[in-house]
């Protein structure tokens, strides 16, 4: 069937014939395009003036109602819209100019292979070799070795300075383990409300309630945020019968006080505050990655990417009936790290 005179593949037919635009053939169309472009540029000029006028004339806190937005800041809207129009005027004008009035016949530029020709390559290699030769690189191995070593080492001081001075990591392991719940002088630390910093009586905590808690020692802290970042605690009261009957529930109960339990709020996954307490299911949910902990089962993980339960803070009451922590956390709080068990 196949005809020997036919080529094996189709051939590129070349550029199609050029089709002229309206503005190329019709002077009136060209004039119209010119007017459109000039109009766009004028819009830009006017908008620039509008921007400057609004900047000085509109008060910083004037509100205006805009459909789909609601009440909003007049100055922000005016400056933004005028700036946008000033820029869009130029942009649309320039592109419209290019499309309608500038030449639209396509131009062909030739390509050449990217690689250099052999002669050029040979010349470059020759120059390199001659340079190395004239520098006596190969004849003087001592120079080669010392220069190489010196170049290899010169960045070291900078690296040492940088790594050495960023921060002292020697206390890292010790500090990751400790919190300001750690009892120093044998005196148990009172639990206080996070914002008001008032102590909490056991009787204040009703069943179903959740308190966001800090240690009383936060008052004397010189590093409030750093200490808070490890010491934030969540306090809940459950009905004593709500805890699981097995060992997990037993631990939760024995470290708590009449159904009141305190757990570190810092997620064992990557450290977000686990704040979402569902008082019916007794589940704690982390809003960052949805790790879910079961308060009735010693805060073990029942869903999500965390592996370990939230560390529990042992609590009791002092003589005045205020909740206190007689000891700090038994394990490091927050995300895992290599030496956590050490």
């Amino acid at each position: 069937m196949s005809d020997p005179r036919l080529p094996a593949t189709f051939e590129n037919p070349g550029l199609p014939p050029h089709v002229h635009r309206a503005a190329d053939t019709d002077p009136r169309a060209a004039k119209r395009a010119e007017r459109q472009v000039a109009g766009l540029f004028t819009l830009s000029i006017l908008s620039t003036i509008g921007f400057v006028v609004s900047y000085f004339a509109v008060k910083n806190d004037t509100e205006v109602f805009v459909p789909f937005i609601g009440a909003t800041n007049l100055l922000n809207i005016l400056l933004g819209v005028f700036l946008a129009l000033a820029l869009l005027g130029i942009g649309f004008g320039a592109v419209h100019w290019a499309k309608t009035l500038m030449p639209d016949e396509e131009v062909v530029e030739e390509r050449h292979p990217i690689r250099s020709d052999d002669a050029t390559r040979a010349k470059a290699v020759g120059l390199l070799e001659a340079g190395a030769e004239s520098a006596q690189l190969n004849r003087r191995p001592l120079l080669k070795a010392t220069a190489g070593t010196a170049l290899g080492l010169f960045a070291l001081p900078l690296g040492v300075q940088l790594a050495g001075s960023l921060g002292n990591p020697t206390k890292a392991l010790e500090e990751l383990k400790s919190t300001i719940w750690d009892v120093k002088d044998g005196k148990p630390i009172r639990l206080v409300r996070d914002v008001e910093r008032t102590p909490i009586k056991a009787a204040d905590v009703s069943i179903g309630a959740v308190f966001h808690v800090l240690p009383e020692t936060i008052k004397d802290s010189h590093h409030v945020l750093e200490d808070k970042a490890k010491a934030a605690v969540l306090l809940m009261r459950l009905h004593p019968n709500d805890f699981a009957a097995d060992d997990l529930g037993k631990k939760a109960r024995s470290w708590g006080y009449e159904g009141i339990v305190a757990y570190s709020k810092i997620c064992t996954h990557v450290g977000c505050p686990v704040g979402l307490y569902e008082q019916q299911t007794h589940h704690l949910l982390c809003p960052c990655h949805q790790s879910t902990f079961d308060v009735t089962r010693d805060c073990e993980v029942i869903f999500g990417p965390a592996k370990r339960p939230l560390p529990q803070l042992k609590i009791t009451v002092d003589a005045e009936g205020y909740l206190v922590a007689p000891q700090g956390f038994a394990e490091p709080v927050g995300p895992s790290y290599w030496e956590r068990k050490k």
């Binding site: 409300r193 009586k201 009787a203 204040d204 905590v205 009703s206 069943i207 179903g208 309630a209 959740v210 308190f211 809940m236 307490y277 569902e278 008082q279 019916q280 299911t281």
Partner: peptide, 12 residues
């Protein structure tokens, strides 16, 4: 403290 929401009574 309706449904899942914990109780925030006046002592809290």
């Amino acid at each position: 403290g309706p449904q899942s929401m914990p109780v925030f009574d006046d002592k809290n």
